[in-house]
Amino acid sequence: MIKRCVLAVGLAASTLAQAGNPIVKDIFTADPAALVDNGRVYLYVGKDDAPAGGKDYVMNEWRVYSSCDMQKWTDHGSPLGYGAFKWAKGSAWASDIVKRGGKYYFYATVSHASIPGKAIGVAVSSSPTGPFVDARGSALITNDMTRETEIGWDDIDPAVFVDDDGQAYLYWGNTVLKYAKLKPNMTELDGPIHTVGLEAFTEAAYLHKHKGSYYLSYSRKFPEETVVMRGPTATGPWSFGGVIMEKNSKVNTIHQAIVDFNGKSYIFYHNAKLPGGGEYRRSVAVEELRYGPDGKILPVAQTAEGPAANPSPGCT
């Protein structure tokens, strides 16, 4: 997979004591994004701060963790909060990240301060652990740019993919999936916004490539299950590849990210398995992802153990 692949350790980093799922056990986390580079996998999550019994998402910052073996994780703190975007007023929702030209571009969902609804911003850093700063000084996507629905949260969950020819794509949306090409600077759209008709699409679109095929996974229905489409290009045409993860029992969302690391594939997701967890107090976990002989992604069960150790040579 070409998309997600820097060995850097942030200041005041600390190693989490326990392996297994959930990955982070001292705070509630959600909406995983992942980046792999130079023998280390970096995990980016939103921090759920809702109180027990809370009735809404309370999310003010993102956190980043890294691992050399998919079991021991290092806490690098917060690389940014929604306040990195001066035009935003809150909601550190789902994100994605990509490396290009020696820089790291972080695409984030926030609430816009002056344009009603959710928006997508782009932050940039010279390190995968931040700090990240606003790359534009304005939103890349705002709610008034798309008119397919009347809801204020249909421009969320950015996912960025760079194809073999160097063309970058941004996918996003709730209820309706949208995508657009990105310019090489990674901070501007390069052409019109397209919509994709997918059966019962809810949110959390994610594109990756494996052995010549493109896989578009997303959250379907509500409560959500993770399904996948398969196609010959980054824009389809798509054929249904099945359910790859069943819905959660205590939380309606699930939100996946998929990476290759040390010869194996992995899927990150969230559930509510920490004590006190629930709809607004989620927990990110990870499992190994496997393909059948025909390239079909096999169903993935959620486990407490998580994947086996897969150490990266020379990574500490």
Rank of each mutant, 00 (worst) to 15 (best):
H76K: 10
R230A: 09
G241I: 02
L140T: 01
N271T: 14
A123Y: 03
Y218V: 05
K211P: 04
I97D: 06
L11V: 15
V251P: 08
Y269K: 04
E225P: 03
A204Y: 05
V45W: 01
V300E: 07
N248E: 13
A257I: 07
D260W: 04
R40A: 13
P293K: 03
T303G: 05
P51Y: 07
M70A: 02
V196M: 13
D163G: 00
K103W: 00
I141W: 02
S249L: 13
Y291R: 05
K99H: 09
G117K: 14
G292R: 03
R282F: 07
F268P: 08
P307V: 07
P116Y: 10
A92N: 02
E61I: 10
E225C: 08
D155E: 06
G306E: 08
K3S: 08
Q167K: 04
K211T: 03
R220K: 15
S265I: 01
G20I: 13
V243H: 03
V98R: 06
D190Q: 09
P313V: 12
N271G: 14
Y171W: 04
G130V: 15
G277H: 02
A119L: 04
D37N: 11
D37C: 14
S125V: 02
Y179S: 01
I254Y: 05
G276R: 06
E188S: 08
V228I: 10
S91W: 04
I120R: 04
T316L: 10
Y44C: 07
V284L: 02
D190L: 11
R147E: 01
